[in-house]
Design a binder for these strands. Structure first.
Lengths: 190, 190
DNA sequence: CCTTGAATAGACAGACCTGTCTGTATTTCA
DNA sequence: TGAAATACAGACAGGTCTGTCTATTCAAGG
């Protein structure tokens, strides 16, 4: 009957809310403990340091992202449709009030040293996205799949940046149409 | 014979280096004072708070940006060429080792509350860029200048994001060609 | 029942943060 | 030369940060 989340899950849930909304350095351990209703020792038992919690949060976010992407792409057969669907989902997400940008871009902003663990994790995530876009571009018959995937990546990160900067109803609304233009131009539709 | 910069200029110069490279919260007043070789009281005389220095830095960056943009556009007559030239310059900048992304995006990442002064300043800057792109899009004969400017903005911020995340030699290299595609498609070239 | 592991509350250390204050030295300019 | 403004060095206050520690309570299983 113990429906409540475990301490570890509560901490991670709180971290998800707070890190995403306010940033990594802005949120202290005391606040995380307070809002997740957990003792300090419990916190440090599950996460030996604040950095390790940041790490866990980024990994959880990565998993969540791919779950989201898969839920979108699995509804379509053709790679072109999958790409379009991804960018439609990105547009919808980016203009929603719940969207505060991309946690990984924020991590890179706050931890600029490329060898910092958080930056590394963010980088790996972005490389993964790039790889997925390239694979779909390839399957979609792009003349230069790498080039198309890089272009699409610029659009996607531009959309997340717009979300953080401008808030809900920003100019990322059009990102799906824009992606479609690039896909059309760079794909041999013959 | 006193060629050295004034205390205020030294502080602002140091702030430019440190804030850009490491972020706003990561750099403390003590470090700024140490590296600019200034007394603490001198610092607080010229900048009544750290926030006001951040503000001054962002305003200086805005000025620098427009000086840069103007130095590029003034070499071309047609709005289309100006747009292309801007994105060629962005590409060149974004892939250079000196580029660490966009200070304003970082400000939005670190100060998410839209009414925070630093976020506000960043927002005004971005609105300015958007307006400039829209004006050029209009003059270039875009069917929908607002739409084209928003698309180009996504590309530009995507390029800055790539610079911060991936470091030198990132995938923003292509941003000028990509921009050109969008300009061509959305402009009545008749 | 009793033991063991886990969670709780909260004090504490030591570092670091912003901003203030005192007092001295240097520069500028009349 | 002398006065006023400016910059210097560095101590200090008060708060916040991460992470450690003690001591108590709760819950489950043998």
């Amino acid at each position: 009957m113990t429906q409540a989340l475990s301490p570890r899950e509560r901490i991670l849930e709180t971290a998800t809310q707070l890190f995403y909304a306010h940033g990594y350095r802005a949120i202290g351990v005391d606040r995380l403990i307070l809002e997740s209703g957990v003792a300090k020792m419990t916190f440090y038992k599950h996460f030996p340091s604040k950095d390790s919690l940041i790490q866990a949060y980024l990994e959880k976010s990565t998993t969540g992202f791919w779950t989201w992407i898969n839920s979108i792409t699995e509804k379509y057969l053709s790679p072109r449709e999958q790409l379009i669907a991804i960018f439609q989902a990105v547009a919808k997400q980016a203009i929603s009030p719940a969207c505060l940008g991309c946690a990984f871009l924020h991590a890179a902003a706050e931890f600029p040293e490329v060898n910092h663990p958080a930056h590394q994790t963010a980088l790996e995530y972005k490389r993964g996205v790039l790889a997925k876009l390239e694979a779909l571009s390839q399957e979609a018959g792009a003349a230069n799949p790498k080039a198309l995937s890089e272009d699409l990546m610029l659009l996607m990160d531009g959309a997340w940046a717009a979300a953080r900067m401008f808030g809900a109803g920003n100019h990322a609304a059009r990102v799906a149409q824009t992606a479609e233009i690039l896909i059309d131009v760079q794909t041999s539709k013959k």
